[in-house]
Simulated scan of single mutants.
Amino acid sequence: MTTAFLHTHVLVVVLFLILFLVKAFLLFFNKHDTLNKARSSTKMLDIVFGTLILVTGGYLAFSYYGPLPSWLLIKVVLVLAAIPLSIVGLKRHNKLLAAVGVLIFGYVYGIAETKSLKIRADKGEAVVVSPNGEVGTASSDPEKASHPILTKLEGTQLENTKAIYTALCANCHGEDGQKGTSGAVNLQLSTLNVEGRRNVISNGRGLMPGFGSQLSEQEIELLALYSTLLKK
């Protein structure tokens, strides 16, 4: 369900931005008559897209595991401000408001891509997954190389993934992966690679249910990586 809402949210946001940028282009180049016609013909679409953005975004925020990170909270606030601001700017043919809307949407996109208010991804070595699913890093630092997944899972992202593991997995696997309730595999001894763990988390195995309908693809990926940290 979460994955469906995520895909819907992204699609609606893209469509809304395309319509907005086209109309902003008409405004900036003083095509007022064409802009009025475009606004009239897409008025209902604007309402539908704006509503869907709020509904799907609200659902995703509500379904987020753990405390919402600051970048996500700021993103939500900016989107809530940018949508009406942009609509008013186009309605009144106000180039300044429309330009501010464009800048806010651009900034929000940068935040979403980097998960940082500075629009700069956290520094760290890239995690490399080999063809057989083994995880490694390009770092030459032996200390970091000994725990390469921590480069991928750090800060709030690590806390959120721990929260997901605690909520969905710890009851059977235990906090350390060794509990073994209801036939759960000992994650410290499991020989499954990352890809195999992703498949099990998504589709389930034996008495374990699949969580593909509850978690996004990124959450499944991070949970699979996190589970490998429990290996001896």
Rank of each mutant, 00 (worst) to 15 (best):
H9K: 05
S146C: 07
P69S: 01
L19I: 13
F5W: 13
V55R: 05
G177H: 06
D122M: 08
G110V: 03
I104W: 13
K23A: 10
D122E: 09
M1V: 09
V55S: 06
F211M: 01
V100C: 14
R197L: 11
L97F: 15
T161I: 03
V128N: 14
L225D: 07
G174Y: 05
R92S: 05
R92Q: 15
L222N: 03
L158W: 08
S213G: 02
L11Q: 13
F16A: 10
Y64D: 04
V12N: 13
G106T: 03
K115N: 15
S227G: 01
T34Y: 15
V77I: 04
T42C: 07
I111G: 06
F28K: 02
F49A: 02
A167N: 03
E159C: 02
Q214V: 12
E154W: 05
L187D: 11
P67C: 04
I18C: 04
I18V: 13
L189F: 11
I87N: 00
L85R: 04
S41D: 09
G66F: 01
L103R: 06
S202D: 00
D122I: 08
L35V: 10
E217F: 00
D46V: 08
I111W: 07
D33A: 15
T3M: 05
L68I: 15
A167Y: 03
I83Y: 05
G106M: 07
F25Y: 07
N36Q: 12
T2C: 03
C169Q: 00
P209D: 08
L150W: 15
F49M: 04
A184L: 06
A82E: 04
K43G: 01
G183F: 09
L45G: 13
G133L: 00
V55A: 14
S227A: 12
M1P: 09
E175T: 10
P84F: 15
L187V: 07
L229D: 08
R120L: 12
Q188H: 00
S40I: 08
R197N: 00
G180K: 10
K231I: 01
L35I: 09
S139D: 07
V129F: 08
H7T: 09
V55M: 07
L35T: 07
V129Y: 11
T151M: 15
V13M: 12
N132R: 13
N36P: 02
F5Q: 02
G106A: 02
L27N: 04
V127K: 02
Q178D: 07
Y65S: 13
G155H: 08
T3G: 01
T51K: 10
G89Y: 06
D46K: 03
G196P: 00
N171H: 14
D176M: 07
T137C: 02
L158Q: 02
T181M: 09
L78H: 05
T228L: 15
L19T: 09
I18Q: 06
N186M: 10
G133D: 11
F105Y: 03
W71K: 11
V88A: 04
Y107M: 10
F20A: 09
F105C: 01
M44Y: 13
S40P: 04
C172I: 08
L35C: 10
F20Q: 10
T34L: 10
A224Y: 04
G174A: 14
L215S: 12
T42D: 04
T161S: 02
A82G: 04
Y165Q: 09
G196S: 09
L90G: 05
M1F: 07
A4R: 03
L72P: 09
L103D: 12
E134Y: 12
G206W: 06
G124K: 07
D141R: 11
N199C: 01
I74G: 05
N36A: 14
T42L: 08
G106R: 00
